[in-house]
């Protein structure tokens, strides 16, 4: 038995192809991003070593910090919207007929590509014939704004399709976690006279704290690296007012061929994601995991 199951050659044969792929296509590039950040490089020609210049430039680059600010705004909005998803899930996981059907309906936008979602919402926000402005005009608003062309509205306007895309995902996760709580615990609380709100707030939410923690990380880190939808809908515009870190990196590298500086932004993005993950884990660590 042991001899067959510890055959080194077979293990190597089974593990190495996949391991090689993630090494070459994930881990080496991660290291190289940091390294390329030390170079002046247009992506095709020779690299010139310039030390920490790109990283120092990054620290004082107002455009980068503008994009970082937008990314963090999105992250905060996303984290706050989790409260709404949690409430919806608490309702759904209660005595709602058709809950299973509803949560599947909610999930549909999550399955579509960001490009399709972006193109669809470009039409929804169309200044004269889109859904939003037609609705506003029918309600008597005379000059509804061109949402995606106005610096003060554009980020908010982009956040709506993001909610549309991800709501079903988080509701699905919370719903599954809530359904896993043993009915006996809820029943015991009910017998002790707890009402529905107390049960939700004092029992159900603490019991799924671990899952909530994971979703906070997912929402925040996911927002920090958000790209596709913004790239297609506005390309970061108008005038940088919807630029986020990933779109800024992409624009620097593949737009202006400043691969060295783009790499520095990419490396910074990686660091921010890892640090934020670590901070959230620390902040939300409460020692014991609940078992039932």
């Amino acid at each position: 038995m042991d001899k067959v199951m510890s055959n080194k050659l077979v293990i190597a044969l089974y593990v190495l192809p996949a391991l090689l792929l993630i090494m070459v296509l994930i881990y080496i590039p991660i290291v190289l991003t940091g390294y390329y950040g030390l170079m002046k490089w247009d992506g095709i020609g020779e690299m010139t070593f310039i030390g920490l210049d790109n990283y120092i430039k990054l620290l004082t680059d107002g455009k980068f910090w503008g994009s970082a600010y937008h990314s963090f705004l999105l992250a905060i909005f996303s984290a706050l919207s989790l409260v709404g998803y949690l409430i919806i899930s608490l309702v759904l996981a209660g005595k709602i007929k058709g809950a299973n059907f509803l949560r599947k309906i909610y999930l549909i936008p999550m399955l579509l590509s960001s490009v399709a979602i972006a193109q669809l919402w470009l039409k929804i926000y169309h200044p004269s014939n889109g859904l939003v402005n037609s609705l506003l005009m029918s309600m008597g608003v005379d000059n509804p704004p061109a949402w995606l062309a106005e610096p003060k509205y554009v980020l908010g306007a982009i956040f709506v399709p993001i909610i549309w895309q991800y709501a079903g995902f988080y509701i699905l996760i919370y719903y599954a976690a809530l359904k896993n709580i043993p009915e006996s615990l809820i029943e015991a609380a009910r017998i002790d006279g707890a009402n529905a709100f107390q049960i939700a707030y004092k029992i159900k939410v603490p019991l799924i704290a671990g899952v909530i923690k994971v979703t906070i990380v997912l929402a925040i880190v996911g927002s920090l690296k958000y790209f596709d939808l913004i790239y297609v809908m506005t390309g970061g515009g108008p005038n940088g007012s919807s630029e986020v870190m990933a779109s800024y990196m992409y624009q620097k590298a593949f737009g202006t061929y400043d691969f060295g500086y783009g790499s520095a932004v990419g490396f910074f993005l990686l660091l921010i994601c890892l640090v934020v993950t670590w901070i959230i884990r620390k902040l939300t660590a409460n020692g014991e995991e609940i078992q039932y």
Partner: peptide, 24 residues
């Protein structure tokens, strides 16, 4: 260790690998 390598891969943002991948 190998399992750990695969699991950490979950946390890597795609964008941070894009330039070296393109170069590769």
């Amino acid at each position: 260790l190998v399992l750990g390598l695969f699991m950490v891969g979950l946390m890597i943002p795609v964008h941070s690998t894009l330039i070296p991948l393109f170069d590769f």
